[in-house]
């Protein structure tokens, strides 16, 4: 058999002979359900292999080259980064940025979801729509809007502060205030996502549980702690972890608002990698910087996957 095509089907590896005289087996093979399903997934697999898996491997390879990409230097880039003060500050700032932003996003999302859930059913849609606005505006554009609001010369916020008799605040030019500003914008953008997730979760808590608790004389706080939180525990965990990934990898807000400045104090991993890799042309060092995100993201991803599976089993 010269023309043996090795292909795997539903039952595993199997050789299919394509004889020039009769195409019967091939036709049967192509007509099988699992083959069609596999062929339908093929474009997706090509995209994932070519645009996710290959770049990821390439990134690891790239991070072990020297600046000119001429020879292999092993873990030299990682060692160099860890010895730099600026990089240590970036790690610190990324942790502060991500953890505090996610905490406030989750709090605001939880509070607003409860407030909306308290309203009569008629008004809920309107308020939900209004509070979802930040999530709908493209992040790059709303970051520009915030940048104008913080603008040092004639900023809208400083105008209000002055009218109220306070002194102006150098929002984006003083490290502490600049860090505060980028976190504020991130909270503003991310809170509606939590709102929508928590609102959906609140609706799925059975009403009978609250009625039973009311008969037992539970107050609002006890209902929240003993019914709402346990029922929503899984969805809260998934949302927090997911948001942690997105916030850790944030780029737009910091790049547009401060560009990492003043004096590199607001850099997060992504903006620092962009500065090293593309602005200053040291692609290997940039790749190494962005790879530092990977362990944190991988751990978060594993827990999300576990949570999603558990949630799927709970629902049915």
């Amino acid at each position: 058999m010269a023309d043996t095509v090795q292909t795997w089907t539903g039952s595993g590896l199997r050789g299919v002979a394509v004889a020039p005289s009769t195409l019967q087996p091939l036709r049967r093979f192509l007509g099988r359900h699992s083959t069609i399903a596999f062929l339908m997934c093929l474009p997706l697999m090509i995209i994932i292999a070519g645009l996710v898996i290959y770049p990821a491997c390439f990134s690891i390879y790239l991070s072990m080259l020297n600046r000119a990409q001429t020879h292999f230097i092993g873990l030299g880039n990682f060692k160099f980064l860890l010895s730099r003060d600026v990089f240590q500050m970036v790690v610190e700032q990324t942790a502060i940025f991500a953890l505090s932003a996610v905490l406030f996003k989750a709090l605001i999302g939880l509070i607003t979801a409860h407030l909306i859930n308290n309203l009569p059913a008629k008004g809920q849609r309107k308020w939900r729509g209004m509070l979802l606005v930040p999530w709908v505006i493209p992040l790059a554009l709303s970051s520009l809007g915030w940048w104008w609001l913080f603008d040092p010369t004639h900023s809208a916020f400083n105008y209000v502060l002055e009218e109220l008799g306070f002194t102006e605040i150098p929002w984006l030019s003083q490290p502490a205030w600049a860090r505060f500003s980028v976190i504020l914008v991130n909270v503003w953008f991310g809170a509606p996502f939590f709102l929508i997730m928590y609102l959906a979760a609140l609706k799925s808590v059975p009403e009978q549980l609250y009625e039973a608790a009311a008969i037992d004389g539970a107050n609002a706080w006890q209902k929240f702690v003993h019914i709402t939180l346990p029922m929503m525990r899984n969805i809260i965990a998934i949302t927090v972890l997911f948001s942690l990934i997105v916030t850790f990898a944030n780029f737009d807000i910091v790049q547009i608002m401060t560009g990492g400045g003043p004096r590199n104090t607001t850099h997060v991993f992504a903006t620092y990698a962009f500065m090293l890799g593309i602005r200053s042309g040291d692609l290997p060092l940039g790749a190494a910087t962005s790879l530092f995100m990977f362990p944190i993201l991988a751990v978060a991803a594993i827990f999300i996957l576990r949570g999603v599976r558990k949630r799927g089993r709970e629902i049915g």
Binding site: T9, S59, L62, F242, I278, A287, S290, I304
Partner: peptide
């Protein structure tokens, strides 16, 4: 439909969805 490896592929898709764009922009 189910085929050999479809479960793994579905999980893989979810994991790639979790990969942030900023992790890959330098190789891309």
């Amino acid at each position: 439909m189910k085929f050999w490896g479809s479960g793994v592929l579905a999980t893989g898709i979810f994991l790639t969805y979790l990969v942030p764009d900023t992790l890959l922009f330098i190789p891309l």
